[in-house]
Each structure stands twice: as structure tokens, then as C-alpha cells.
């Protein structure tokens, strides 16, 4: 009888072969052998991404029934539906990775509810006006495009393929958001004031979006691991600088003011210097203690539990 146990030497060979595949930019598939650290890094990254899409639908959804024209109603409904679709796609990718542990989507939901699985810090923020629907679409999705397009060549095939579709749709979302912002920025004094006020509130969350520059800020960071395994190639700070490069000129061209008088571009280093966001606030947000963290979690938890009879009924039909 052949032993299923492999020797330490064989394990090392397996790992070396895996890292060769990573270095050769080969795509790792769901059924391939992968080191535990790689699987865990992917689960953490993709489940958080998936849940962020689902939880991220909630702040925008607040404005769906209130959208001010028929076209805006159609646009924002389609946009929020896309986000739920991204969540579904990513949770399916995560479910395959969870197979060895016997966990499923229901377990991920429970992890979200008990705080073990986090959702993106930007979706813990409050929305106050219609301009927020525009800023989320234009700048939050714009920030997401920057981080997600960097992973289009991720070493894990199923994630890279899901991102192809997600990024294509995010481009439409950013255009949808930009269109809302343009209408307001070119509108009445009140509309222009509404956009400026919204930008003032969202500027700091947008800086936090990319995470701290190093793990010293919060005590831990997955950015080194994701770079090691060629899931992504750039650091948090590089992403933030790319965001500045792309959006600062666009924001200014609309006649808006960026709420940071210290913001400055250094032509020699090609880097922006800026006022750091409140990283202590960030630490609170990622512990689900942000402005709307508990309300949003509660809304999802409540609706999930209140309708549990539907899932039970469907399982009974399948049996």
C-alpha cells in the first residue's frame, strides 16, 4: 500500500515546483496543489473582496429609490446590481478554495456577521446626499479600478478571470459616477456645493481606501504576501500615487477644491505629498467600529436571518 504521507524532502520539492510556476507566470487553478499560505492568502483576499462588493451595494442602494430622474434610476439600479453580481462571482471563486476545509457560503456569511471576515473600509462610511452616489461611482470605483486592474494577471487563474469581467464593468460604473458628478458640477450653486461637500467628506476615506503604506501603521498587512505570490505587483502607496496622478487633475478641472492645503506634487520624485488620513480612525473602521459599520452589518444580518425560511424551503425542494 502506498503511503499518502509525503516526506519533508518531497514537500520542499512540491513547494519549489509551485514557486517555479509562480515565477514563470503560470496560472494556478482550483484543483492544483498549492501551499497552505497561498490558499489562505487567496481566501482572505477574495472573500473580503466578494463581501466588500455585497456590503458595498448597501451605501449606494440607499440612493437607488431616491435617484432623481428615470435615467439615473435605471443607471444606479444597474450599477448596484453589477456589484452584487461581482460579489456572487467572487464568493463562487472563494467557495472552491474553501472545499478542503468543508466550508461554504453560509459559513462566510457567519464569518462576516461575527466579525472574522471584514469588508472594505470605504463601505463603512455614511452617505448623506445624492452627490455621494456620484462620488462613490466615480472615485471609489475609480480607486477600485486601480487596485483591481493590477491583479488582472494574478497567479490564481479563477480570480484573474473573474477580475477581467469585474474591471470591465467597473469602468462603466466610474463613467456612471462621473456623469452624475458632471451634471452636479455644471449645475446650480446648490448642486455644486453638494458635490464639494461630498468630496470633502470622502477625501479621507479615499486615501484610506488603499490601506497604510506599511504594516507598521496597523500591525499587519497582506501586501508582502500578495506580492510574493504574484497576486499583485504594486504596493498600497504606489496605488495611492496612481490615484492622485489620475484623479487630481480631473477633480480640479471640474472647479472643485481638494480638501488638503498641503497637497503637493514633487516633479523630481514624481510623487505627491499629502496630509495623512487619521490612521487611528482607520484602525477602528477595520475592527467594524466605523461610522456605519454596525448598521450595515445589522441590515445584512437581519435580512439574511429574517429570510432564512426561504433557503430552508429551497433546500427541502431540492431534496
Amino acid at each position: 500500500m502506498t503511503s499518502l504521507l509525503i516526506t519533508a524532502e518531497e514537500q520542499e520539492e512540491q513547494l519549489a515546483h509551485f514557486m517555479q510556476r509562480i515565477e514563470a507566470e503560470d496560472k494556478i487553478e482550483a484543483d492544483d496543489w498549492m501551499p497552505e499560505e497561498y490558499r489562505q492568502t487567496l481566501i482572505k483576499l477574495i472573500s473580503m473582496h466578494g463581501m466588500s462588493e455585497i456590503m458595498g451595494a448597501l451605501p449606494e442602494k440607499e440612493w437607488v429609490p431616491k435617484a432623481p430622474t428615470l435615467n439615473r434610476k435605471l443607471g444606479i439600479m444597474a450599477k448596484v446590481q453589477d456589484e452584487m453580481g461581482h460579489g456572487q462571482l467572487l464568493l463562487r471563486v472563494t467557495e472552491d478554495l474553501l472545499l478542503p476545509y468543508g466550508k461554504n457560503r453560509g459559513d462566510l456569511m457567519q464569518d462576516l456577521f461575527n466579525g472574522d471576515l471584514k469588508f472594505h473600509n470605504v463601505f463603512h462610511m455614511e452617505t448623506k446626499t445624492w452627490a455621494d452616489a456620484g462620488v462613490i461611482g466615480w472615485l471609489v470605483d475609480g480607486a477600485a479600478i486601480i487596485t483591481q486592474t493590477n491583479m488582472l494577471k494574478a497567479s490564481y487563474g479563477p480570480y484573474a478571470r473573474a477580475l477581467q469581467r469585474i474591471c470591465a464593468e467597473e469602468v462603466f460604473h466610474a463613467q456612471h459616477g462621473e456623469s452624475i458628478i458632471m451634471a452636479l458640477a455644471e449645475g446650480t450653486n446648490e448642486q455644486r456645493a453638494m458635490v464639494q461637500e461630498s468630496l470633502n467628506r470622502w477625501w479621507e476615506p479615499l486615501l484610506m481606501f488603499f490601506g497604510p503604506a506599511s504594516k507598521e501603521t496597523t500591525g499587519s498587512s497582506k501586501q508582502d504576501l500578495t506580492i510574493k505570490y504574484k497576486i499583485r505587483t504594486k504596493t498600497n502607496e504606489e496605488f495611492r500615487q496612481l490615484f492622485f496622478d489620475k484623479y487630481i487633475p480631473r477633480i480640479l478641472s471640474l472647479g472643485l477644491t481638494i480638501p488638503d492645503p498641503t497637497l503637493n506634487y514633487d516633479a523630481e520624485s514624481n510623487l505627491w505629498s499629502y496630509k495623512q488620513p487619521d490612521w487611528n480612525e482607520f484602525k477602528k473602521i477595520i475592527k467594524n467600529q466605523g461610522p456605519r459599520s454596525q448598521e450595515r452589518l445589522n441590515l445584512r444580518r437581519h435580512s439574511y436571518e429574517y429570510n432564512s425560511w426561504v433557503r430552508e424551503a429551497l433546500s427541502a425542494t431540492v431534496r
Binding site: 437607488v64 439600479m77 448596484v80 446590481q81 435580512s303 439574511y304 429570510n307
Partner: peptide, 26 residues
């Protein structure tokens, strides 16, 4: 239908029903 967004019992149900709400608004 749009008030249901994000709250349906399954993510798949959410996506399908919101697609129908969109069509109806159209």
C-alpha cells in the same frame, strides 16, 4: 423592487430580481 436590493434571501435572487426591477423601470 428596488427597495429589495441587497436584501434578498440569496445573492442570486438579488441579482435576478433587481434585473427585473430594472427592466420594469425601463
Amino acid at each position: 423592487g428596488s427597495e429589495w436590493l441587497g436584501l434578498a434571501p440569496h445573492i442570486e435572487a438579488d441579482i435576478a430580481s433587481s434585473s427585473i426591477s430594472q427592466d420594469s423601470m425601463g
